[in-house]
Amino acid sequence: MKISEDELIIRGILYDEYRAYENSYTVYKKLYDDTGAEIYLFKEATSALMSRTHILESITRLKLWDKKNPNRIEVRRLLIPLYLTIRQVKNATIEAEYLLEQSKEPMDLDLASNSFLYAGQFKRALELLSRVYESVPREEILLRMIDIMDEFTGERKRAIQLLETHRRINIVSHDVYAKLLSLYQKENNIDGILETYKALYQQNNDEEYLGRIIDVYVYKRDVEGAIDFLETDQSRNDILYELYKREKRFSKALSLVDKLYDQDQDAKWIAEKGVLIFENSKDKNDKKMIEDVISHFEKAIELGNDDSIYLNYYGYTLIDKEVNVKKGIDVIENALIQQPDNMYYLDSLAWGYYKEGECDKAYKVMKRVVDEEGLTEPEIIEHWDAIRQCK
């Protein structure tokens, strides 16, 4: 029983829909053989291209039809990718030249560029893609141009300029930023990398990009730049706080610490405030200031913060300022339970023993500190000299 043309058409459409292109090739081949209608020949060739089968046969049938129906642009559009599929690059470039004589449409310039790219004629391919991009400034066209400029024509700086211009006037995908980062890395352009991450962060507000921005500032050793950025951004006051402390900008850190406590109610910020009040004070022996510092540590401990860093700071303050040396020693011993080999905590303990007049115990602990750390820090030197004289 002969299958009707309508039924064959329906079969071909269904095979295409399910991407069964080898089956649709067979259907369209029969339809063309039965009817001679060009549309079926073109669909037959398209199916061959999509299935990557029967390529030579499709080329032969298209060429035969082309002799009878010369200068049909549809044939050029099919022959170029068919030739490229079987790596007949020379034939593809010949067809591309014919296509360019017939059409200046962006889609045809784009198609022709593939032949010249495969043929290693990179400048020619780039020139065609540039014309396409001028007419239709699509991102995918630009990225193909960038790859050619980066890998083949040695125009990396121009590629960066094109990408930067494109992203400033268009909404772009992550691919554009990824390519920019790649090019800036190859050019060792740290400022370019930084600005790209800033643009990504502005677009997506992703914490990952903020981390990368800070990493770049650290790599550049540009703490001031990082501070300026974070002061403007105001989304990571915790990082800004640490930078303030690192740079000994204690008054600025003090202006942040209450905000940080309000955000998460973490008692560590109360202890941090105690540290800042002391460090920011001009008179380190001011009794009212010392009372304020101690009250902050006690409040933090009462609220459950027993981090050894703050215990040591609190205990040392009690000892050094002779507020309550015995209690200070107890606090330091609690810190040493957490970190028994911490030389700074042992230094505080030795100083407590010294203040209590227990010179032998102070000497034994302090000698361990000096043997481990050496005499490089002024405070250790001061304690060591005093304890040796005491002994």
Results as ranks from 00 to 15, higher is better:
R11N: 06
Y25H: 05
K259M: 06
L311F: 01
R19C: 11
K327C: 07
E139Q: 03
K273T: 05
T60N: 14
K252T: 00
R131G: 05
Y201E: 08
R87V: 05
E74G: 13
L181W: 05
L82G: 04
R221V: 00
Q102F: 12
K367P: 00
L64F: 05
K123P: 01
F278R: 02
L129N: 03
A92W: 11
L117T: 02
E17P: 02
S251I: 09
N342C: 00
A199L: 01
E208M: 08
F229A: 07
R72N: 14
K287F: 00
E382W: 07
G352R: 11
L260V: 01
Y313V: 00
R19L: 14
K259Q: 11
L62R: 05
R72G: 05
D320F: 04
R124A: 04
V218E: 15
I80F: 13
E5L: 12
Y201M: 06
K252Y: 01
G192C: 02
E187N: 11
Y83D: 07
A362L: 02
D108R: 15
A119Q: 06
I213M: 03
L128E: 03
A178M: 13
K220R: 15
E44A: 02
S135G: 13
D206I: 04
E242K: 07
D215P: 03
P378Y: 10
N305Q: 02
Y314N: 03
A226K: 07
Y310S: 01
E17D: 12
D215Y: 11
H54S: 08
S51K: 02
K287Q: 14
I3T: 15
S115V: 03
V223L: 13
V365P: 08
R72Y: 09
T376I: 10
L181H: 03
D16E: 15
Q202E: 14
G274H: 08
A350S: 15
A267S: 02
P81F: 07
Y344D: 10
I80C: 15
E151K: 07
L200Y: 00
S281K: 11
D222F: 03
N324H: 10
E291I: 08
T53F: 01
M145T: 08
I3C: 10
A253H: 12
I309E: 00
V223S: 14
K391Q: 09
N188M: 06
F116Y: 15
M145S: 10
K67E: 12
L100W: 14
L128G: 07
L243F: 13
K43E: 12
L62T: 09
E224C: 04
M343N: 12
N91V: 08
E379Y: 12
N204Q: 14
R221H: 09
Y344H: 06
Y25L: 01
G192H: 03
S51D: 07
E195G: 02
L142E: 06
R77E: 10
I319W: 10
I141L: 04
M149I: 05
S295Y: 04
Q338K: 15
M343Y: 07
Y314E: 02
A253C: 14
I9F: 14
D150T: 03
G36R: 09
N204P: 00
L243K: 05
L82D: 06
E298H: 04
I9E: 15
E379T: 12
K284Y: 10
L194I: 00
W65D: 09
I329K: 07
D320R: 03
Q234W: 05
L31K: 11
D215G: 11
G36F: 08
N334C: 02
R87G: 01
Y261H: 10
I171D: 14
